[in-house]
Nucleic acid binder design. Structure first.
Lengths: 131, 131
DNA sequence: CTCATTGACAACCATACGGTTGAATAAGGA
DNA sequence: TCCTTATTCAACCGTATGGTTGTCAATGAG
């Protein structure tokens, strides 16, 4: 499966409060569909659907114990999200730092505010760069 | 806004590849709607909708520069996600460690495999615990 | 003032989503 | 064997989503 697709599934799966709640419960310990359904006032079928979504996203795996199909949380998928998030957070924070440095340098040489624009660090001139 | 709702919006916003791509571009630098729309073969209106979703999730903010409405990435929202993810990842990993310790302790006293069930660490007996 | 640019809003369409009910499958227990 | 439990599958319903086209508001340039 394409990694992009997988990321989409994971994010979409966690966009639902009930499914996040299920993940929270599974973090405590494995559980069956019936057990997971109990706290909510929805049918077992609905929870089964939620579990299918979580399963397709790779967040939970199922095993078999007689008629039961216990659900198990697969924590490693979280790494995929964390990696994605951290990447852009760091990028954004880096950009913020650069802007901060720019403002500081402008502040330093206050009095001849005519050529300060040349101090702009290269690489963040996205605005206005496109045709 | 309820935090749960906010989290849902953020996850839902990032569940779309185009919107993740937009976030990636904004991490490099602010941009206008038109600039953001260019790489994709969808209309500007569609991108505007995407930006509304990202805005409602608190992921991007808008300012005004003449007719233009530059988009700016708000990195702090990532913290909300990271916190949620780390919480359950750590819980799941902790549970994994406990299971590992259990298996190790069982392995140690191999030979009298009759009462090993009492060695189960407390707190992870979710399965079968619900009434 | 008039026009071009930038972007948002409204209405519409097809599809996906979360939920339901009802029936089917799988596995034990009487 | 028949019945109960646990879970899924199938069909349906209302609403949300991502996309389109068309129109309108805001602003700057001629």
């Amino acid at each position: 499966m394409p990694e992009d697709d997988r990321l989409s599934r994971v994010f979409a799966a966690l966009a639902d409060p009930t499914r996040r709640d299920i993940v929270a419960r599974l973090a405590v310990g494995d559980a069956t569909v019936g057990e997971l359904a109990e706290p909510y006032d929805v049918t077992v079928q609905a929870v089964s659907k939620h579990l299918k979504v979580l399963g397709d996203a790779g967040l939970v795996s199922r095993s078999r114990d007689a008629q039961r199909r216990p659900c198990h949380l697969e924590a490693e998928v979280f790494d995929l999200m964390t990696k994605w998030i951290e990447r852009y957070r760091q990028q954004a924070e880096e950009r913020f730092r650069r802007l901060d440095a720019l403002l500081a340098s402008i502040d330093e040489e206050s009095g001849d505010g005519t050529d300060g624009t040349d101090d702009r660090p290269a690489g963040n001139d996205q605005t206005g760069a496109a045709s």
